[in-house]
């Protein structure tokens, strides 16, 4: 399948981390674009949870198995080990209790894939340093008072949290502003400065 040009850059990275035929739960699946990509390219048994009812109804009309729900409060209904992968793409920073959500992902899934915007990116740092105001960028266009993103973190912060919940980092990928992967051998500090977003494959 040809990937349409509006596919979010982290979707391709996430898809590359998923084994064919896997059972996948996408938490915060939005309009179902990633689930559809995974079904079409990886033949996964995909399910989704989405907060907005509009997103859910669109997904179901497209034939996807999706329910309305909240990452913070509704993951408890899923049994242990129900999925091979639980995906949280660009949603972690919008949860009320990211650490608890991460633990839940690794309870429900054998592996978790988490992608998030890196608040340690040099543009964020520069924006705060130079302007003295909360950064507003093309990718993160909200003002501080109306943003759904209440728990921003940096790549380094996230790595710390994986240790706190006892998760092992199996693969980590940082993407620059052009959506290109940063060099694999670079230290976390380099990624933390130049990665605009990161994708982590975690296991228990």
């Amino acid at each position: 399948m040809s990937i349409n040009t509006t596919t979010r850059v982290d979707f391709d990275v996430i898809a590359s981390l998923v084994n064919p035929g896997a059972r996948v739960l996408d938490v915060g699946c939005d309009d179902g674009q990633l689930l559809e990509l995974l079904q079409n390219t990886k033949n996964v048994d995909g399910r989704g949870v989405e907060l907005s009812q509009k997103g859910v109804n669109e997904c179901v009309a497209r034939g996807l198995s999706v329910i309305q729900g909240d990452a913070d409060s509704d993951l408890k209904y899923y049994p242990d080990d129900g999925f091979d992968y639980v995906i949280l793409s660009q949603t972690l920073q919008a949860t009320r209790n990211p650490k608890n959500v991460l633990s839940e992902l690794l309870r429900i899934g054998e592996k978790a894939i988490v992608s998030f915007p890196n608040f340690g990116h040099w543009r964020m740092r520069a924006s705060l340093l130079v302007n003295g105001r909360m950064p507003v960028t093309e990718e993160l266009p909200y003002s501080w008072y109306d943003t759904p993103n209440i728990h921003f973190c940096t790549i380094n912060d996230f790595v710390d949290m994986t240790k706190e919940v006892g998760a092992q980092v199996e693969t980590a990928v940082a993407l620059n502003a052009l959506g290109q992967r940063l060099g694999f051998n670079m230290p976390w500090g380099f990624w933390n400065l130049f990665g605009q977003q990161a994708v982590f494959l975690l296991r228990r």
């Binding site: 999706v66 209904y77 899923y78 049994p79």
Partner: peptide, 18 residues
């Protein structure tokens, strides 16, 4: 019902219509 189906590991779509 949807949560029970989740707990049972069943495939479920759940829409609420406005």
């Amino acid at each position: 019902v949807a949560h029970a189906l989740n707990a049972a590991g069943a495939s479920v779509s759940f829409v609420e219509i406005e």
